[in-house]
Design a protein around this nucleic acid. Structure first.
Lengths: 227, 227
DNA sequence: CTCTGTGAAAATGTTCACAGCG
DNA sequence: CGCTGTGAACATTTTCACAGAG
């Protein structure tokens, strides 16, 4: 499925680890701002809500960058993680759909600050096209292909209703994006060379409902059993 | 860590399965709307982007509800999954922070339609307090405890800036919520009886960046190797 | 003596492959 | 026959526990 990486170049980082690196990065940036120069795996664990052994194993995939008896150098780690996540080069993203969610994403501090720049936004609503969002002019959905291609946009963000999502994805792909982040509650099909991730807000709430329901059931059961 | 569930009551459903149930549910609702009465694991797999063996194993945790040679009854499964996710009782949620993201969540079709009702919203900005969002009046953050308690709200959604998130969480907990869904980029502490889930928009983008970066590197390497 | 780095064990999750029901 | 349900094989992830560097 995946091509083999030339082994000398860099060790393969497990998926589970990759998904935690941004978490560590954020905490490390906090430490850095508070002028903390060194952290132990224990401290980083406390700050991120991950356990210490996992932190050490995760960081070990980046290389042996810690000092025994001391911990990790904050600045060094910030750099190493940013590097590995590919946040050092600055990436342009385009966003389709400037409803509430789209606007929330455009204004999201976290995006702009970490090597991402929202360089274009698109909508199908004639009333929105031509208006400004965060000092960007909203373009028509039809212009995605040309705009992505001409503007060197490598990432497409989809924040449209589900019905429009596949069309938008096809346009992003035609324009040549390398990755798509999909917020629409729809299953998309893209060619294998394009990386696709999805975030589904209502699914998260439903998962929460399961655990909430179960736990209150559990408590009921426990009360019952205690009688 | 977790209490043992009385075995007769219901089989324990693995976490990975729970996180896919809402996905199946959505597809099943689509089938239902299109008046499809029966689906095979293969069909459901295609519609959700999960593989068929996984679909069958997941559904088997709910019970043996399929018919061999035929498939699963759509309506029956919809009911069974809704039941297990605890979506049959109607739940009230409160939302703190009515910036762009908060408003996007309030208006999110997916929330209202599946047994959730956003029953209250809160903000700290005096300019927003008293205004209406989706025919709800925005209340002050200070009123969370009382409002949650009096209104029977069981779920708190946090869409505030990171700095306010822990305070809001404490208030939700004091008011008696059973679960919290956190969109703020902050690590929260809540008592163990409160279920906590988080969604971090910028982290998803960073994870995407990793795979995008790696794959374009891969392509480079492949070109190199082919020479 | 502290804290990393890591093998090895345990737990969790995924895929295979096929027996057997309808 | 077609398609579910599920043991058993395989893969990934987490946790443990400790040797050894500083």
């Amino acid at each position: 499925m995946t091509l083999e990486y030339p082994d000398a170049l860099q060790r393969r980082i497990p998926e589970a680890t990759v998904s935690r690196l941004p978490l560590y990065l954020r905490s490390l940036l906090d430490f850095s701002e508070r002028e903390v120069s060194t952290v132990s795996s224990e401290k980083l664990a406390a700050a991120t809500g991950v356990n210490a052994a996992k932190v050490r194993k995760d960081l070990s995939y980046l290389g042996s960058y810690g000092t025994r008896g001391v911990g990790y150098d904050v600045e060094f780690l910030v750099h190493a993680i940013s590097q590995r996540l590919g946040l050092t080069r600055d990436r342009k993203a385009g966003i389709a759909g400037v409803g509430n969610l789209g606007r929330a994403l455009v204004n999201y501090r976290g995006f702009g600050e970490r090597g991402f720049r929202i360089a274009a936004c698109f909508d199908s609503d004639p009333l929105k096209i031509g208006t400004a969002v965060n000092d960007m002019t909203v373009s028509s959905i039809d212009e995605i292909e040309a705009s992505v291609c001409a503007g060197g946009i490598t990432i497409g963000i989809i924040a449209t209703p589900a019905a429009a999502a596949q069309d938008v994805a096809d346009r992003f792909v035609a324009g040549g994006v390398l990755g798509i982040l999909n917020f629409a509650p729809a299953v998309l099909t893209v060619p294998p060379e394009v990386t696709l991730r999805k975030v589904d807000l209502s699914i998260e709430l439903q998962i929460l409902a399961f655990y909430v329901g179960r736990d209150s059931g559990l408590i009921q059961a426990a009360i019952e059993a205690a009688k």
